[in-house]
């Protein structure tokens, strides 16, 4: 293996890891800071991917809508807006109610999006998928290395921007209210906070980031179909967030990297070790193992690798390990 092929593999791996890290960051805003359980992560990711594909993709002979061929940044923007809109509708209906309703409804969204992707042939081309999606900077070099490197930079810039914004937000008074809601909804409401509005904001923000991640994926890979958006994705992202450390934005990014490395590494190992006729079983074993990781983490190390830092605000920094007075209550 020469240096260039190792490098291009590393770039390819990091690009995929960054889709997961970004989604995990979005989920962290919902689950990590606000305690909202979104079972339909893959649904919002798929909304983003399909939106960008429709906005930026070419016109296909067999579709009635789409193929606008607009610049890729507009695709990303549209993806953010549509997934935020879907999140607003679901959130508006369910976030006033008991937390289980959000879980059930987001599950419903994921199922519905899957059905639309499969059956709304005139827009999504059903199981055939949308192809030839434009990738920014493509064709700069023969080996794809240069344009992949540039794409990685786009992904890292997105992660950086979201990380910076989310860090500012969760350390602001707004972020403190989110954590107050997560810990004790009744107390937050008693202090005059509009619990519903804060939850809705956090939920919509998180879903918008998931939509962006989906759009980045679609325009990188150039081809999307319903098989790309299955429930296991949601599960992987939860494992990433919990392993990395929910409630910690760096943990969310790290979890995406670590778990994606484990996942793709074990996939390569299984493919190399087992005969081809056992691959279905091998895939099942891998999913059972990742399920076990999740359950064991929930039972024995719910804080993850990087635990949540107990910081009250920018102005009042506290040393590591110190706990704010409120946490003792």
């Amino acid at each position: 293996m020469d240096f260039l092929s190792v490098l291009s593999f590393a770039v390819f791996f990091l690009i995929f890891a960054s889709f997961f890290s970004l989604t995990s960051l979005g989920l962290n805003m919902q689950w990590g800071f606000t305690g909202l359980f979104n079972v339909g992560v893959v649904g919002f990711y798929a909304i983003g991917a399909y939106t960008s594909a429709i906005v930026t993709g070419p016109a296909y002979p067999d579709t009635l809508f789409g193929g606008f061929g607009l610049p890729v940044p507009l695709g990303y923007l549209a993806a953010i807006l549509t997934s935020a809109l879907a999140a607003f509708v679901v959130g508006f209906v369910t976030l006033r109610l008991r937390e289980d309703y959000l879980a059930i409804s987001t599950f419903g969204i994921a199922v519905t999006i899957q059905l639309l992707a499969l059956n709304l042939q005139s827009v999504t081309r059903g199981p055939n998928g949308l192809y030839s999606l434009p990738k920014p900077f493509s064709g700069l070099s023969a080996s794809n290395l240069v344009d992949n490197l540039l794409y990685l930079l786009i992904c890292l810039a997105c992660i950086g921007a979201v990380y910076w914004a989310f860090e500012r937000m969760v350390r602001s008074p707004w972020g403190r209210v989110l954590r107050a809601i997560r810990e004790d909804e009744t107390a937050a409401a008693a202090l005059g906070k509009n619990v519903f509005a804060y939850r809705l904001q956090a939920f919509v923000l998180g879903c918008a980031v998931m939509g962006l991640a989906g759009a980045l994926y679609a325009n990188f890979i150039g081809y999307i179909s319903p098989q790309d958006f299955v429930p296991i994705f949601t599960f992987q992202v939860y494992v990433m967030l919990i392993v990395g450390g929910s409630g910690n934005n760096r943990g969310a990014i790290l979890g995406g990297l670590v778990v994606w490395a484990l996942w793709s590494g074990s996939g390569g190992l299984i493919a190399a070790v087992l005969p081809p006729d056992l691959q279905t079983q091998a895939a099942a074993v891998r999913i059972v193992l990742i399920g076990l990781i999740l359950v064991l983490m929930l039972l024995y190390r719910p804080a993850g690798i990087l635990r949540e830092r107990h910081i009250v605000s920018h102005e009042a920094r506290m040393g590591d390990g110190a706990r704010p007075p409120a946490a003792d209550a």
Binding site: G35, F235, V285, I287, V288, L292
Partner: peptide, 21 residues
């Protein structure tokens, strides 16, 4: 309650794949 839902979510995924196995 959310941890319970999430654990159930994990069991669901594992269950499906154990049946497949």
């Amino acid at each position: 309650r959310i941890a319970l839902i999430m654990a159930a979510f994990g069991v669901s995924l594992m269950g499906r794949n154990i049946v497949t196995l």
